[in-house]
């Protein structure tokens, strides 16, 4: 049933290198934003069956806040920042300089603050990628949803699902001051353009 578009070993190696540099930039951006050490850890670059992707964060029923961004241009991709709901509330407290435990629900201001985190993650990641590959990668404004992880990941996968039964998944976790956060970054690049970019061999 699969319409496999596995990346070749050299393509995968190139993508690993690009993604590694890009998440390093995301760490730098988040550390500046939070004025505290935020690291992007446990980077994986893998080809995963569509049916398996939601389980990468644990249960597809996990309650998360998802920040969804789309990279356009020569290397289109769907980007997701997912965080467990309590973590999202905790981040709002930090960003809005409120005492811990103050934020109890997400309103317009809280969503805007989380969207800004998504913007930092997305733009630092894409800027690094764009610079390495030599392309322009504009990014859409963030869209936020509080829902089951499976629902959030499913919508992000619709673009690549149109063309393949597997997805190239770039995913990573976050650490804040040495503590692992229940939050994930995921990128689903469009398969054809990704292979074309990786085959250019200009980076």
């Amino acid at each position: 049933m699969s319409t496999t578009f596995l990346l070749s070993r050299p393509q995968m190696t190139r993508l690993q290198g690009l993604a590694s540099a890009a998440v390093g930039e995301v760490s730098r951006g988040l550390t500046e934003m939070f004025s505290a050490a935020v690291a992007v850890t446990a980077l994986h670059v893998r080809v995963v069956e569509l049916s398996e992707v939601p389980s990468l964060v644990g249960s597809p029923e996990l309650e998360v806040v998802a920040v969804y961004l789309i990279a356009e241009g020569e290397l289109p991709a769907q980007l997701l920042l997912l965080m467990e709901y309590p973590t999202a509330l905790e981040l709002c407290d930090i960003l809005l300089e409120l005492p811990s435990g103050t934020t109890e629900a997400l309103g317009e201001m809280e969503e805007s603050a989380l969207g800004e985190v998504g913007n930092i993650v997305g733009s630092f990641f894409l800027n690094s990628l764009a610079e390495s590959v030599g392309v322009h990668l504009p990014i859409t404004p963030p869209t936020i949803a509080a829902d089951m992880a499976g629902a959030a990941i499913g919508i992000a996968l619709t673009e690549v699902a149109m063309f393949a039964d597997e997805a190239v998944v770039i995913d990573a976790n976050f650490e804040h001051q040495g503590r692992r956060l229940p939050a994930w970054f995921m990128a689903f690049p469009h398969p054809d353009q990704l292979r074309a970019a990786l085959d250019k061999g200009t980076f």
């Binding site: 969804y68 789309i70 949803a145 499913g154 919508i155 619709t158 673009e159």
Partner: peptide
């Protein structure tokens, strides 16, 4: 068949 996101900038998830 929920409309999880209230906006969609990509071609294939428009009113998906």
């Amino acid at each position: 068949g929920a409309q999880v996101l209230q906006t969609a900038a990509s071609r294939h998830n428009f009113r998906i």
